[in-house]
């Protein structure tokens, strides 16, 4: 499902102008791709946040520019609460795009019942697929994952036409025996070792001699 984002053309660029827009509840954006000219835009923060909340990677731009676009990059503020800037890439439905899709665990791992810990190693996977068929998530079925087992990239069920752009032998999920961490040894002293202390002392000694 693709959300629609209302955009307007942005005449002023730069830090001051962008900050002013953000204070007004808007988000500076840029649109590029398809060999066409780069366009400075501005979108409402609510519309951008709604698209993110719905997990839409492809959005329909309306208003000053009417085109389908991929949210290529989204910059967030320090706390990751408000979007600061959006990069839109022009796409048509038949284009093949490269996107990072989150991996989600599906099912109950039998290895977990035997005392194992399920670790998701690859949180997101880079895919190449059609713009109109970008999946929201890739499900890793852990229903048959035994203790000591691993699900690799080539074991994942990808949507038709999608191709993983990472090594097929990369581990996605593992089920391992938890390592009991004992109390850290008291060895090592109460103070850390000083780097380059000896040369300084020698230098001082030489200075005293001279």
């Amino acid at each position: 499902m693709s959300d629609s984002v209302e955009v307007k053309l942005r005449k002023e660029t730069g830090t001051r102008a962008s900050r002013k827009l953000r204070r007004e509840g808007l988000v500076p954006a840029v649109l590029y791709g398809h060999g066409e000219k780069c366009v400075d835009l501005v979108a409402t923060r609510d519309a951008v946040q709604a698209a993110v909340r719905h997990g839409s990677r492809i959005v329909e731009l309306k208003g000053a520019v009417k085109t389908g676009a991929l949210i290529r990059e989204l910059q967030w503020d320090t706390f990751g609460v408000e979007p600061v800037h959006v990069d839109f890439l022009r796409v048509s439905a038949t284009d093949r795009v490269k996107v990072k899709v989150p991996v989600d665990l599906k099912g109950e791992c039998p290895g977990q019942r035997n005392g194992g810990v399920v670790s998701l190693i690859l949180h997101e996977i880079e895919l190449e697929c059609r713009a109109d068929a970008v999946p929201e998530k890739i499900h890793a079925a852990v229903g048959k994952l035994q203790l000591g087992g691993t699900i690799k990239v080539h074991d994942l069920e990808l949507p038709a036409g999608a191709k993983a752009l990472v090594d097929g032998d990369d581990a996605v999920v593992t089920c391992t025996v938890p390592v009991e961490k004992g109390e850290e040894a008291a060895a090592g002293g109460a103070e850390p070792e000083l780097i380059g202390r000896k040369p300084t002392e020698e230098g001082e000694a030489e200075a005293e001699k001279s």
Partner: peptide
């Protein structure tokens, strides 16, 4: 044993 660096350039 509390966390602390193993090696430092200056103590303080």
């Amino acid at each position: 044993m509390a966390l602390m660096p193993k090696r430092v350039k200056h103590r303080k």
